[in-house]
Design a protein around this nucleic acid. Sequence first.
RNA 1: GCGGGUAUGGUGUAGGGGUUAACACGUCUGGUUGUGGCCCAGAAGAUCGUGGGUUCAAAUCCCACUACUCGCCCCA
Length: 424
Amino acid sequence: MANIQRAKGMQDVLPEDRNYWDWIIQTAADLARRYGFRRIDVPIIEYTDLFARGMGTASDVFVQKEMYTIAEPDGSSITLRPEYTAGLVRAYIQNGMGSWPQPVKLFTFGPIFRRERPQAGRYRQHSQFDVEILGETDPAADLEIMMLAMNLYRSLGYKGLTFQLNSTGCPVCKPAYINALKAFLADHGDKLAPIDKERLAKNPLRVLDSKEKGMDDLLADAPHIADHLCEDCESHFADLRDLLDALDQSYSINFRLVRGIDYYTKTVFEVWAEGIGAQAAVCGGGRYDGLAEAIGGPSVPGVGFGSGIERIVLGLKEQGIEPPQPDAPTVMVAHFGGVTKTAAVKLAFQLRQAGIGTRLAFARTRRSLKSQMREANKHAIHTVIILGESEVEEGMAAVRPLDGGEQVRIPLAKLVEWLSETRD
RNA sequence: GCGGGUAUGGUGUAGGGGUUAACACGUCUGGUUGUGGCCCAGAAGAUCGUGGGUUCAAAUCCCACUACUCGCCCCA
């Protein structure tokens, strides 16, 4: 058995769990369409270059290790997508969506791949629901993205939801802020943990994300990005907050909320839910006005979010929320082999044709009715139709309700009508 | 990449050197001719993760490896 197992970090989604998935995806798609988003699907594989440019060079070495990259015989390099946004922006540019009515609002679902060490709620293949608005700078677009995310979790029944909101500035104002932050941290270098000193050197913004002891107090006095925003970012952020207020939507300004990649500009946000442990964030997103240019295209502003389905499922389970059960057959046809089996097979398909979900008993030889009844009971069947020799001879069916009630004989010709009137 | 934990039938567990590895759930069959759930009886199903070592004897002790899992780093 030891050698028959799924690859590391991969997951089987068993039928029981799949109920959560279907429900989540259905809910999300309905919601997105109500907001005017349309579904798109892009390939799982893109040229490696697209992701390399999209991510920026800061985390290049690291990124290389986490991506599933394949060298093709023709010398090109392709990669299993580690995120959605770059591929969607590529599709926007390549398909000339710049000349569609703007903005273009898209959503999608599917797997993304990162070679990380697996952990609770984090796998090497995981699926995301991803939503983007491309070609729009209005803060109301940011609002729409945020509210779509929030309302998705609300629709699913999540409790204890909060918005964490911040602005990360833009290429005009961000560098000056980073310098101010660096200077501040350098002044307090003796108070930094080794890990934070490393972050300070590599990616100063990440120090804000530090969970080291004493950092809460220290960072309280650190410069806030909000005080360093340029005029454009400042007004964008103010407008967004006004709109949230207009909707009576509460949120927390979290100046320590930062996102890893370079391409984020202005708005960054996360939705947090209570009760799912260390991974409080069920989704993260933001604005990325510089991404399209970074990958070598025209300037196209964008804002969006991605949310991991596995993590949503985890949260639902921890909050004790169960998905609706999908329809399963409630009618079963039992028989005793031979001519009765032939009759049963014909009947089962007639019922299905008529829209009645039907389970057919299988049996290579004569099989006891007891075992067929037991089978019915295990599958929540509420009506067993028994076709024995005498029934077949007379063109009748013995209809046995399992939820109480008398067994009756119904002419086969009237069975569909009888079932739809009486049993559903 | 770094650290912790765990590995026994399909699942969850018990057993801690000595003849047929136990229990529960699940699965299957039967409990008089063609009737479920409860109950009863029975059956199938494990070379005790892999490889080595100690021993007369290893599921049990030792070592290594692998896998799984939790956390750290990092997170698109």
